[in-house]
Amino acid sequence: MIPAAFDYVRATSADEAISLIGEHGEDAKFLAGGHSLLPLMKLRLAQPSVLVDIGRVSDLSYIRDAGDHIAIGALTRHMDVERSPLLAEHVPLLAHAAGHVGDPQVRHRGTLGGTIAHADPASDLPATTLALGATYVAQGPNGTREIAAADFYQGFLESALAADEMLTEIRVPKMGGAGWSFQKFNRRAQDWAIVGVAAWRRNGDSGVALVNMGSTPILASSVSGALAQGASIADAAQLAAAEAEPQSDLNASPEYRVHLAKVLVRRALEQASA
C-alpha cells in the first residue's frame, strides 16, 4: 500500500529534532530506521502528519565504554550492535540478540533507539535490554532524564517517553563474564519471535526477560527469584510465565506460548549455566 500524505523534515541534531517535534505537535513522529513506522504507515495504521527524520543524526550513532556500562547511541543500527567488538566482549548477549533481528536489510536500517521507543513486545532488543537491566536516556525540551528499562514499557507500543521526548542513549551494564543465552522461537528466520527468551546468570544473580509474552516485554522476576533461593533450573523454569499475559495469534494460543516459555527458559538457563 501507499501511505497517506505527510510532510517531512530532517533534523541534524537531537536538539533540532526535539524542537521540530515540539513545533509540529501531536501528530508529528520521529523517523529513525523506519522499519517499524513505515510498514504501519503503508497499511495506513499510522497516519502521522509530519515525519521528523532523525536517521542522519550521526553523533547519536556510537558504542562507547563508559566504565561499568556500555553506552550506545539511540541511532546505532542493529548491524553495528551485532558486530561491535566492545559489546562482544562486555555484553555478548545484546550483540548476539541483535543478530537475530529480522533479516540483513532490517538490521542495516533499524536502530536500537527505534526498536526500544517503539516498545513492541514481540521485538527482540527491548526484552534483551530489559533482562540486562539497562537504563535509557531521554532528552526533552527541558533536558534529559534516565529511565530504568523496568519502568519504561507501559503498554502495547506504549513507553514512558513523552511525545516530545527523544531517546538518545541506551546504557547496558557490563555482564562481567556472566553465562547467557538468547532463545528465539519462530517459524521463519526473518520473523518476530513466537516466544523469545533473553537470559544471563552469574552466581546467584540472573536476569530473564520474555519476548512476545504479553503487551510489553516481560521481566520474568519469579524465575530469577526462585534461582536466587536455590531452585533447580527445571523448577525455576516452571515459573517462566508467572508475570506473562500471552496473546493468541495465528502462530500460537496462550497455552502454547506458556508452554514454550517454560521450555525455552529452561533451555536458556541450561545454556547460561553451562
Binding site: 517459524r187 521463519r188 528466520a189 520473523d191
Partner: peptide, 24 residues
Amino acid sequence: AVYDSDGNLKSGTLAEYLVPAASD
C-alpha cells in the same frame, strides 16, 4: 490462507502468510 468465521483473511500480508525464504 487463514480465514475467520466472518470470511476475513487473517493471513493478509506476507508477515502472516509464511512463504519460506532460502534460510528456512
